[in-house]
Design a protein around this nucleic acid. Structure first.
Length: 253
DNA sequence: CTGGGGAAGGGGCCC
DNA sequence: GGGGCCCCTTCCCCA
Protein backbone atom coordinates (compact mmCIF):
# COMPACT_ATOMS: atom_id res chain seq x y z
CA UNK A 1 0.00 0.00 0.00
CA UNK A 2 1.07 3.37 -0.77
CA UNK A 3 2.51 5.27 1.95
CA UNK A 4 0.45 8.16 2.04
CA UNK A 5 0.97 10.18 4.91
CA UNK A 6 1.11 13.35 3.42
CA UNK A 7 0.74 15.71 5.95
CA UNK A 8 1.74 19.14 5.75
CA UNK A 9 4.54 20.03 7.88
CA UNK A 10 3.84 22.83 9.85
CA UNK A 11 7.09 24.09 10.24
CA UNK A 12 7.88 23.77 6.96
CA UNK A 13 7.35 27.12 5.87
CA UNK A 14 10.72 27.89 6.49
CA UNK A 15 13.38 25.72 5.43
CA UNK A 16 15.70 24.82 8.10
CA UNK A 17 18.53 27.10 8.16
CA UNK A 18 21.15 24.66 7.50
CA UNK A 19 23.81 27.09 7.55
CA UNK A 20 23.26 27.77 11.09
CA UNK A 21 23.24 24.25 11.99
CA UNK A 22 26.17 23.18 10.26
CA UNK A 23 29.53 23.76 11.15
CA UNK A 24 31.70 26.18 9.77
CA UNK A 25 33.66 24.07 7.59
CA UNK A 26 30.81 22.61 6.05
CA UNK A 27 31.58 24.00 2.84
CA UNK A 28 33.39 21.14 1.94
CA UNK A 29 30.69 19.17 0.94
CA UNK A 30 29.37 21.03 -1.69
CA UNK A 31 30.24 19.35 -4.58
CA UNK A 32 28.93 16.18 -4.25
CA UNK A 33 28.93 14.25 -7.05
CA UNK A 34 29.27 11.18 -5.63
CA UNK A 35 31.92 11.46 -3.51
CA UNK A 36 32.57 14.17 -1.69
CA UNK A 37 30.43 14.13 1.06
CA UNK A 38 32.49 12.92 3.30
CA UNK A 39 34.54 13.36 5.64
CA UNK A 40 33.48 16.16 7.19
CA UNK A 41 32.08 14.26 9.70
CA UNK A 42 33.99 16.20 11.77
CA UNK A 43 32.26 19.11 12.61
CA UNK A 44 30.67 18.14 15.61
CA UNK A 45 27.84 20.11 16.46
CA UNK A 46 27.42 18.14 19.33
CA UNK A 47 25.77 20.73 21.19
CA UNK A 48 22.79 20.76 19.08
CA UNK A 49 20.33 18.44 20.43
CA UNK A 50 16.78 18.53 19.46
CA UNK A 51 14.35 17.66 22.01
CA UNK A 52 11.42 16.61 20.02
CA UNK A 53 9.38 16.07 22.98
CA UNK A 54 8.39 19.58 23.03
CA UNK A 55 7.61 19.90 19.47
CA UNK A 56 4.40 18.14 19.21
CA UNK A 57 2.57 20.81 20.80
CA UNK A 58 3.91 23.30 18.52
CA UNK A 59 3.03 21.76 15.29
CA UNK A 60 -0.49 20.85 15.08
CA UNK A 61 -1.47 19.63 11.81
CA UNK A 62 -4.67 20.47 10.40
CA UNK A 63 -5.17 16.98 9.75
CA UNK A 64 -7.21 15.53 12.28
CA UNK A 65 -4.73 13.74 14.17
CA UNK A 66 -1.93 14.58 16.06
CA UNK A 67 1.17 16.24 16.06
CA UNK A 68 3.40 13.96 14.70
CA UNK A 69 4.66 15.83 12.00
CA UNK A 70 7.50 16.90 13.72
CA UNK A 71 10.11 18.37 11.82
CA UNK A 72 12.63 15.94 11.44
CA UNK A 73 16.09 16.40 11.41
CA UNK A 74 17.04 19.68 10.58
CA UNK A 75 20.43 19.37 10.37
CA UNK A 76 21.42 18.11 7.39
CA UNK A 77 24.51 19.07 6.64
CA UNK A 78 23.50 19.96 3.51
CA UNK A 79 23.61 23.42 3.19
CA UNK A 80 26.02 22.93 0.80
CA UNK A 81 24.06 20.70 -1.02
CA UNK A 82 22.10 23.43 -2.06
CA UNK A 83 24.90 25.14 -3.37
CA UNK A 84 26.79 23.59 -5.93
CA UNK A 85 25.43 20.46 -5.80
CA UNK A 86 24.02 20.44 -8.95
CA UNK A 87 26.60 18.32 -9.84
CA UNK A 88 24.78 15.40 -9.36
CA UNK A 89 24.51 13.36 -12.07
CA UNK A 90 23.22 15.40 -14.59
CA UNK A 91 22.13 12.45 -16.08
CA UNK A 92 19.21 11.62 -14.25
CA UNK A 93 17.19 13.22 -12.01
CA UNK A 94 18.52 12.99 -8.85
CA UNK A 95 20.99 15.20 -9.62
CA UNK A 96 20.30 16.69 -6.51
CA UNK A 97 23.10 17.12 -4.37
CA UNK A 98 23.41 15.50 -1.29
CA UNK A 99 25.09 16.54 1.58
CA UNK A 100 27.74 15.44 3.59
CA UNK A 101 27.12 13.37 6.36
CA UNK A 102 28.72 15.26 8.66
CA UNK A 103 28.16 16.56 11.86
CA UNK A 104 24.82 17.39 12.13
CA UNK A 105 22.92 18.37 15.03
CA UNK A 106 21.58 15.61 16.97
CA UNK A 107 17.92 15.25 17.56
CA UNK A 108 16.58 13.80 20.65
CA UNK A 109 13.52 11.80 20.59
CA UNK A 110 10.60 11.72 22.75
CA UNK A 111 7.87 9.43 21.96
CA UNK A 112 5.38 10.97 19.80
CA UNK A 113 2.39 9.81 18.11
CA UNK A 114 2.18 9.48 14.50
CA UNK A 115 -0.26 11.15 12.43
CA UNK A 116 -1.90 9.71 9.59
CA UNK A 117 -3.92 11.66 7.27
CA UNK A 118 -6.78 10.22 5.59
CA UNK A 119 -5.82 11.10 2.21
CA UNK A 120 -4.96 8.22 0.12
CA UNK A 121 -4.01 7.57 -3.27
CA UNK A 122 -5.39 4.31 -3.66
CA UNK A 123 -7.55 4.91 -6.46
CA UNK A 124 -6.41 5.20 -9.78
CA UNK A 125 -7.04 8.12 -11.74
CA UNK A 126 -9.98 10.16 -11.28
CA UNK A 127 -10.48 13.13 -13.34
CA UNK A 128 -8.56 15.81 -11.94
CA UNK A 129 -10.41 18.76 -12.87
CA UNK A 130 -12.37 19.61 -10.03
CA UNK A 131 -10.90 21.24 -7.22
CA UNK A 132 -13.51 22.30 -4.92
CA UNK A 133 -13.04 25.68 -3.76
CA UNK A 134 -14.05 26.09 -0.30
CA UNK A 135 -15.10 29.29 0.87
CA UNK A 136 -13.13 29.20 3.81
CA UNK A 137 -13.88 31.47 6.37
CA UNK A 138 -12.61 34.72 6.12
CA UNK A 139 -9.03 34.32 6.18
CA UNK A 140 -7.76 32.68 3.15
CA UNK A 141 -9.20 30.75 0.36
CA UNK A 142 -8.89 27.07 0.54
CA UNK A 143 -8.73 24.60 -2.27
CA UNK A 144 -10.03 21.26 -1.35
CA UNK A 145 -9.09 18.03 -2.94
CA UNK A 146 -12.08 16.20 -4.09
CA UNK A 147 -10.42 12.90 -3.63
CA UNK A 148 -9.45 13.33 -0.07
CA UNK A 149 -9.92 15.73 2.78
CA UNK A 150 -6.86 17.73 2.20
CA UNK A 151 -7.00 21.38 1.57
CA UNK A 152 -4.53 23.88 0.23
CA UNK A 153 -4.18 27.54 0.15
CA UNK A 154 -3.16 27.72 -3.47
CA UNK A 155 -4.43 26.10 -6.58
CA UNK A 156 -0.95 25.15 -7.58
CA UNK A 157 -0.44 23.23 -4.39
CA UNK A 158 -3.72 21.51 -4.87
CA UNK A 159 -2.91 20.56 -8.41
CA UNK A 160 0.35 19.15 -7.27
CA UNK A 161 -1.45 17.17 -4.68
CA UNK A 162 -4.01 15.88 -7.11
CA UNK A 163 -1.24 14.28 -9.05
CA UNK A 164 -0.82 11.96 -6.16
CA UNK A 165 -4.25 10.70 -6.97
CA UNK A 166 -4.00 10.66 -10.70
CA UNK A 167 -0.46 9.35 -10.91
CA UNK A 168 0.32 10.56 -14.39
CA UNK A 169 3.84 9.23 -14.62
CA UNK A 170 3.88 5.61 -15.59
CA UNK A 171 6.83 3.30 -15.78
CA UNK A 172 6.96 1.72 -19.17
CA UNK A 173 8.77 -1.24 -17.78
CA UNK A 174 6.47 -2.34 -15.04
CA UNK A 175 3.52 -0.08 -15.37
CA UNK A 176 3.80 1.39 -11.95
CA UNK A 177 2.53 4.93 -11.76
CA UNK A 178 3.89 7.90 -9.91
CA UNK A 179 2.80 11.37 -9.17
CA UNK A 180 5.91 13.09 -10.36
CA UNK A 181 8.40 12.57 -13.09
CA UNK A 182 11.37 12.48 -10.82
CA UNK A 183 9.75 9.82 -8.73
CA UNK A 184 9.41 7.81 -11.87
CA UNK A 185 13.03 8.42 -12.73
CA UNK A 186 14.06 7.21 -9.33
CA UNK A 187 11.92 4.19 -9.80
CA UNK A 188 13.41 3.48 -13.17
CA UNK A 189 16.73 3.21 -11.49
CA UNK A 190 15.46 0.20 -9.69
CA UNK A 191 15.17 -1.39 -13.08
CA UNK A 192 18.41 -0.15 -14.51
CA UNK A 193 20.46 -0.55 -11.42
CA UNK A 194 21.91 2.86 -11.80
CA UNK A 195 23.32 4.29 -8.60
CA UNK A 196 24.63 7.73 -9.10
CA UNK A 197 25.20 8.57 -5.48
CA UNK A 198 28.18 7.05 -3.86
CA UNK A 199 29.51 7.22 -0.37
CA UNK A 200 32.91 8.75 -0.09
CA UNK A 201 33.68 6.70 2.94
CA UNK A 202 32.96 3.26 1.71
CA UNK A 203 32.28 3.60 -1.94
CA UNK A 204 28.90 2.15 -1.60
CA UNK A 205 26.52 3.55 -4.15
CA UNK A 206 22.89 4.47 -3.93
CA UNK A 207 20.19 5.20 -6.38
CA UNK A 208 18.61 7.74 -4.15
CA UNK A 209 20.30 10.68 -2.64
CA UNK A 210 18.28 10.59 0.50
CA UNK A 211 19.34 7.05 1.05
CA UNK A 212 22.92 8.06 0.69
CA UNK A 213 22.34 10.72 3.25
CA UNK A 214 20.90 8.20 5.63
CA UNK A 215 23.80 5.95 4.95
CA UNK A 216 26.26 8.67 5.69
CA UNK A 217 24.83 8.78 9.13
CA UNK A 218 26.20 5.37 9.73
CA UNK A 219 29.66 6.76 9.31
CA UNK A 220 29.11 9.71 11.53
CA UNK A 221 30.42 9.51 14.99
CA UNK A 222 27.62 11.55 16.34
CA UNK A 223 24.38 10.63 14.72
CA UNK A 224 21.48 12.83 14.20
CA UNK A 225 18.96 11.35 16.51
CA UNK A 226 19.76 11.23 20.14
CA UNK A 227 17.91 9.63 22.99
CA UNK A 228 17.15 12.24 25.54
CA UNK A 229 17.48 9.73 28.29
CA UNK A 230 20.64 7.86 27.59
CA UNK A 231 22.15 10.14 25.04
CA UNK A 232 22.71 7.34 22.67
CA UNK A 233 22.53 8.47 19.10
CA UNK A 234 20.95 6.81 16.12
CA UNK A 235 21.19 7.28 12.45
CA UNK A 236 17.48 7.19 11.90
CA UNK A 237 14.56 8.47 13.75
CA UNK A 238 12.87 5.13 13.41
CA UNK A 239 15.72 3.52 15.27
CA UNK A 240 15.53 6.07 17.98
CA UNK A 241 11.83 5.49 18.22
CA UNK A 242 12.34 1.79 18.51
CA UNK A 243 14.94 2.38 21.12
CA UNK A 244 12.71 4.53 23.19
CA UNK A 245 9.71 2.39 22.83
CA UNK A 246 11.63 -0.62 23.85
CA UNK A 247 12.66 0.54 27.15
CA UNK A 248 15.32 3.01 27.63
CA UNK A 249 13.22 6.01 27.59
CA UNK A 250 10.16 4.58 29.04
CA UNK A 251 10.97 5.97 32.32
CA UNK A 252 11.25 9.44 31.48
CA UNK A 253 10.77 10.65 28.27
C1' DC B 1 16.27 -7.35 18.12
C1' DT B 2 18.76 -3.76 16.03
C1' DG B 3 20.77 -1.43 12.31
C1' DG B 4 20.83 -0.36 7.72
C1' DG B 5 19.45 -0.29 2.83
C1' DG B 6 15.86 0.30 -0.77
C1' DA B 7 11.97 2.44 -2.46
C1' DA B 8 8.55 5.76 -2.51
C1' DG B 9 5.46 9.71 -1.12
C1' DG B 10 4.90 14.63 -0.03
C1' DG B 11 5.47 19.68 0.52
C1' DG B 12 8.27 23.65 -0.38
C1' DC B 13 11.29 26.51 -3.00
C1' DC B 14 13.46 28.22 -7.09
C1' DC B 15 13.78 28.95 -11.93
C1' DG C 1 1.69 28.84 -13.31
C1' DG C 2 4.33 24.85 -14.06
C1' DG C 3 8.25 21.96 -13.82
C1' DG C 4 12.20 20.46 -11.60
C1' DC C 5 14.81 19.79 -7.72
C1' DC C 6 15.63 19.47 -2.71
C1' DC C 7 14.91 17.62 1.64
C1' DC C 8 12.33 14.96 4.76
C1' DT C 9 9.92 10.93 6.22
C1' DT C 10 8.18 6.57 6.31
C1' DC C 11 7.57 1.70 5.43
C1' DC C 12 9.34 -2.74 4.27
C1' DC C 13 12.72 -6.06 4.18
C1' DC C 14 17.06 -8.11 5.05
C1' DA C 15 21.56 -9.05 7.43
Amino acid sequence: MPRSFLVKKYFAKQKPNYSELECQNATSLDKYPLAELSSTATCLTAGLVWDLSVLPALYLPTCQTEPSAIPGPLDLSSPSSLSSSASSSGEEDEGRTSDPPSPEPVHTYAPRQRMKCTGTMAHVSPPEEEEREAPVAASRPAFLCKHCPKEYTSLGALKMHIRSHTLPCVCTTCGKAFSRPWLLRGHIRTHTGERPFSCPHCNRAFADRSNLRAHLQTHAEVKKYQCSVCSRTFSRMSLLQKHSSSGCCSATA
